[in-house]
Design a protein around this nucleic acid. Structure first.
Length: 429
RNA sequence: GGAGAGGUGGGUGAGUGGCUGAAACCAACGGUUUGCUAAACCGUCGUACUGGGAAACUGGUACCGAGAGUUCGAAUCUCUCCCUCUCCGCCA
């Protein structure tokens, strides 16, 4: 949620920002309603002041056993007016809030203005020395992850579909072990080398939490909902981890703090059938290790860079080719002010696959979720902090990259070195 | 699923419909004292919205789980809802 003061003070900047994101949002209507709201407040508070003062006088008169009927009659009228204005104010408040909530976050000045993914900027790419050259014709047949999974009996999409439907992968044998190894390796690396604190969150959350991080109301059709209990399956651990501090005020020394947590992620992916849906490329349930930072506003962009660095480190240790994109304004998500995407190389698809998205939300989520901190210690005035998060990383896309990049000419799969202590085997097949 | 208890500031916890934004205590912060620590003493110590002011600051309004009602006036009375905790049953 944007700061109403900011909208009021620099409306043209907000208008431009909304446009740059290819979002709709009526800034002018917001300004008009805001004006109306403050007029009502001025009027109703004046009346309430009168009521309070006269009520005191009535109390005084009664104490002195004098007659107060005139004043009481007078106040009856005032009270009715207050009731009317309060009702009007309530309606205006809701309307204003809905409209402000519909405005996207404004991109940081370093974000290139652009319409679509075509305008994203590739900042750098990294190719480990020992993997195959990306743009060369491979020397042997390259199997895709589905064929590899079937060949070794480690991924069973058919039985997954029998159990739950398409898009619910079933890992078997060494595939299941590799998946678990990947999760543990990523968690351990972030905890031990990057200073994150581990969280194991609930996988279902309530509506308030979904509003807090901005999944609701916009993305409701993309989430699994348990209607009987009014709970949602989380689409990412970002939701529970960021909401840990919803409606709280953190102490100065708690900011910045870094959290890292594994969760299964559930997405309905409604309306996306047909595009890149085979195998792991788009699934309804996947595993992800998520990084979340609560940062001081003046440091949040440095924190974003180090967050991306933490994710890159994982890919470098695993020796998986990747590239880093800076998303343009039009491709940056609703709540984010600046986002980097990390994409891993799929030799079978001959394309890059998004495996991580790292964003600085500035105070957009914090304002929604009401997460504040006291910057100068116990006596200082609370202010909104900045939230950041990034996938560190999603295993489904990573699994594709590992299987495909680490396949031998015979179609066997080498387990990446850092995962071997976790798997207990060095080769699949 | 059954039975019960309870939601008041950072915490504990008072609070006969008007003098209660809210006692007291603890924590925190500033200070005095002190060789250091401790103790003691003094002071400060909610948030949001809105108006004035360049600002320090200041006027007003609201907030005692949420919402509605009664009333000139509600933390206090009434109703509805939400949440938390405890015990029993069932179960991982």
């Amino acid at each position: 949620m944007l700061d109403m003061k900011r909208i009021r003070e620099v409306p043209e900047l907000v208008r431009q920002g909304v446009q740059n994101k290819n979002e709709k949002g009526d800034v002018d209507a917001v300004l008009v309603i805001d004006r109306r709201r403050r007029d009502i407040i001025a009027e109703v508070e004046q009346l309430k002041n009168t009521r309070n003062v006269v009520s005191q006088e009535i109390a005084q008169l009664k104490k002195e056993k004098k007659d107060a009927d005139d004043k009481i009659a007078e106040m009856k009228v005032v009270s009715d007016s207050i009731k009317q204005l309060d009702e009007e104010l309530r309606i205006v408040d809701v309307d204003l809030r809905d409209r402000v909530l519909a405005l996207p976050n404004i991109c940081h000045e370093s974000v290139p203005v652009g319409r679509s993914s075509a305008d994203n900027v590739e900042l750098r790419s990294w190719v480990p020395p020992h993997t195959m050259r990306l743009n060369e014709e491979p020397e042997h047949v390259v199997l895709d992850h589905i064929e590899l999974g079937k060949k070794h009996g480690i991924l069973d999409f058919d039985r997954g579909a029998k159990l739950s439907g398409s898009g619910f992968p079933l890992y078997v044998g060494q595939g299941a072990t590799l998946e678990r190894a990947l999760i543990n390796f990523m968690l351990d690396t972030h905890l031990r080398e990057h200073g994150y604190r581990e969280v194991f969150p609930p996988f279902v959350v309530n509506t308030e939490s979904m509003y807090g991080t901005g999944q609701l109301p916009k993305m409701s059709e993309d989430m699994y909902r348990c209607a009987d209990d009014d709970l949602y399956l989380i689409p990412t651990a970002e939701v529970p981890i960021t909401n840990m501090y919803r409606d709280e005020i953190l102490e100065a020394e708690q900011v910045p703090s870094y959290f890292c947590g594994y969760s299964a992620c559930f997405r309905r992916e409604a309306g996306s059938y047909g595009k890149q849906t085979k195998g792991f490329l788009r699934v309804h349930q996947f595993n992800k290790v998520e990084l979340v930072k609560f940062a001081r506003p003046e440091q949040s962009y440095d924190e974003l860079e180090s967050l991306v660095g933490n994710v890159e480190h994982i890919l470098q240790l695993l020796e998986i080719p990747y590239r880093v994109l800076l998303l343009c304004s039009g491709d940056t998500s609703f709540s984010s002010a600046k986002t980097y995407d990390l994409e891993v190389w799929s030799p079978a698809e001959n394309t890059w696959l998004e495996a991580s998205s790292c964003s600085n939300f500035e105070d957009f989520q914090a304002r929604r979720a009401n997460i504040r901190f006291r910057p100068e210690g116990a006596q200082s005035k609370p202010q909104f902090l900045h939230t950041l998060n990034g996938s560190g990383l999603a295993t489904s896309r990573l699994m594709v990259a590992i299987l495909e990049n680490y396949q031998t000419p015979e179609g066997k799969i080498i387990v990446p070195k850092p995962l071997q202590p976790y798997t207990g085997f060095t080769m699949i097949g």
